[in-house]
């Protein structure tokens, strides 16, 4: 049975209107509706496949074929699959994507200004973490940049790859996501480091409902990213953005990274570089790492593992 079949753009719109919007209106500012409008393109087109090799490759193919037919790619198009056969994480690491999880790729045209584009990778981890909290997994937290952990094990992973369309030269961000939901077995190399939501909760979850919650939150945070961009342009006309973005403020509430002793490396699994304590996260999202000798490093790129 294809658990993703109920996921359509209409279902997402309905979910946002009935559940997500009233929820945010209770907690957030009067601009809630504007923020949802700005993010409304996320999931404006949803394509569900029973299985794919890689969702990122399918997204590239989709962009190329749309251009070939002289059709614009709908910004915010989503590719979802019940399972992936050739899925991989960063650095070609193993990523197991059997039926039972939520696997896909969101196509975003690069319409963000640089200081805001930099915060884009924070968003999927936040959307997933909040959806987990709502589902009852209140222990979920984010490890910089966007790994979602449950009891120290990875429940969800995200990666963003740039792609320039060959014909029109349009730049896209392909946001790949993999969420372990009802899939409850992992290959031996991932057994100790990965976990699914159903393993954590001890019960199966409704995948399509969880997916709607996750996608609605992606809409909200992408809308918030654009809303702050709009407000900043109106305030200053551009230049240097030095404020703490409301998105980052919320990310800090959802993350347990600050204060942790970590191992850092660009590819921390293959080439760990050094140990340090996370002192803070800077306004541009960079990690501020305090070394044992009292000095500090600022890292804009790389990975950490908690020690």
């Amino acid at each position: 049975m294809n658990n993703l079949a109920p996921l359509t753009a209409a279902a997402l719109n309905e979910y946002v209107s009935a559940i997500e919007l009233p929820g945010q209106q209770q907690e957030s500012s009067p601009e809630t509706e504007i923020i949802f409008r700005l993010g409304a393109y996320v999931g404006s087109l949803i394509r569900v496949y029973p299985s794919l090799d890689r969702a990122m490759d399918k997204a590239r193919h989709h962009i190329v074929s749309q251009e070939g037919e002289n059709v614009s790619v709908a910004n915010g198009s989503l590719i979802l699959a019940s399972s992936l056969h050739l899925s991989k994480g960063r650095f070609s690491r193993s990523w197991h994507a059997p039926p039972g999880g939520l696997w896909g790729c969101l196509i975003l045209a690069d319409t963000f200004l640089p200081p805001f584009r930099q915060l884009l990778p924070l968003i999927p981890g936040m959307a997933c973490c909040e959806a987990l909290h709502e589902e009852g997994a209140s222990a979920a937290s984010i490890r910089w940049v966007n790994d979602v952990l449950l009891q120290g094990k990875k429940q969800a992973g995200f990666l963003i790859e740039g792609f320039r369309s060959p014909r029109h030269g349009e730049n896209y961000h392909l946001l790949g996501f993999g969420l372990n939901l009802n899939n409850d077995s992992f290959p031996p190399e991932l057994e100790g480091s990965a976990v699914s939501l159903s393993q954590f909760l001890g019960r199966p979850v409704n995948i399509s409902r969880f997916a709607l919650s996750f996608l609605a939150k992606l809409r909200w945070y992408i809308g918030l990213l654009l809303f702050e961009e709009q407000q900043w342009l109106a305030r200053t006309g551009g230049g240097v953005y030095e404020d703490e973005h409301p998105l980052l403020k919320r990310w800090k509430e959802l993350s347990d990274t600050v204060g942790k002793r970590v191992l850092f490396g660009y590819d921390v699994v293959q080439h760990p570089q050094y140990e340090a304590v996370v002192g803070a996260v800077a306004n541009d999202g960079a990690l501020i790492l305090n070394h044992d000798d009292g000095t500090t490093s600022i890292e804009h790129s790389g990975e950490i593992r908690y020690l």
Partner: peptide, 14 residues
């Protein structure tokens, strides 16, 4: 030519 990958906050851009 796509010659270099820029990596910033887990976002890899050609």
């Amino acid at each position: 030519d796509e010659i270099i990958i820029m990596s910033l906050m887990k976002r890899d851009t050609p």
